[in-house]
Design a protein around this nucleic acid. Structure first.
Lengths: 153, 153
DNA sequence: CGCAATTCAGTTGCGTGCAATACGTTTGCG
DNA sequence: CGCAAACGTATTGCACGCAACTGAATTGCG
């Protein structure tokens, strides 16, 4: 098993990071056929998922859930508003806060969202238990990365 | 266990797709402290990994490995060239093809790349075998998504 | 050979992501 | 109360990522 190249574990296919990176893109592509006809992108769909769970969430809290900042969310939410899925409204009790509310249209598309997920789950080959197991492992990895990465101190 | 919300598995935290999506960002962030001082982004680093394995690869083949198209790669490779990591050269035998070659600088940073990976692996909490197992599961998922998603025929 | 189809890279347009920064609102402390 | 610090959102600039398209080079078939 002699290696003609100095193999230091830096082969692309050996990398967990690349596996995750490329699979994330594959997920986005897998959802696209279901979302595109609605005029939704995948990150926009994630925002709607949060709102389906609890309406009137502040931008900041959406950011915490999705790990995104206002630089990403503000324009995204404006596009969602323009497309008629949500309403953006300043919190009268704290004028710094902008709360996001679903419109009727925003609530309507939940059905289609559920169908989208069903289709993708199907493509994954069934077994919900396996999927949940994998999800837990991937989430754990994310938390470890987030714990290891932050500021030096 | 009554649900006060119509739970159709559409909660953000139940989603494997979101786990992968957010973990991909976490990986990028984890690599950043190592890559930023070099003036490299994570996707640029992926391209270098391919070239470390085999130099002089065509843009098209880089795209196949990374699942990216020329719309993404052409500007990225131009930036890599401008930063002095690679050289872009038309294939004289087939003028349509552009081959990418490492410069001395491009070869130099391999060491730092290896250190970057070591740091991230460390943050993941060790056990190479577990990491490889997870990598295999995630890669399998990607292939299932890619097999399920393509054109309707 | 001759020409249509294919291939490959490049370009444009749009939607993320993220760092850095700006700005108005609120809080906390003397 | 008065003001500095903290907070929440918005803006700008840059780098992906992808769809749609362009244009040059090559291939393949009659």
């Amino acid at each position: 098993m002699s290696e003609h190249t100095p193999s230091d574990g830096l082969t692309l296919d050996e990398q967990l990071c690349f596996a995750v990176y490329s699979t994330a893109h594959a997920f986005t592509a897998a959802y696209k056929p279901a979302l595109e006809p609605l005029g939704l992108t995948y990150p926009q769909y994630l925002v709607l998922m949060i709102l389906w769970e609890k309406d009137g969430v502040a931008v900041k809290d959406i950011g915490k859930k999705l790990f995104l900042d206002s630089g990403t969310l503000t324009p995204l939410l404006k596009r969602l508003e323009k497309a008629g899925f949500v309403r953006r409204q300043r919190d009268s009790a704290d004028e710094r806060v902008v709360r996001i509310f679903l419109t009727d249209r925003g609530r309507e598309v939940r059905k289609t969202g559920a169908e989208a997920r069903a289709g993708v789950v199907c493509a994954l080959g069934g077994k919900e238990s396996e999927i949940q197991e994998l999800r837990a492992a991937v989430n754990k990895m994310r938390e470890q990365l987030r714990a290891g990465a932050p500021r030096p101190t």
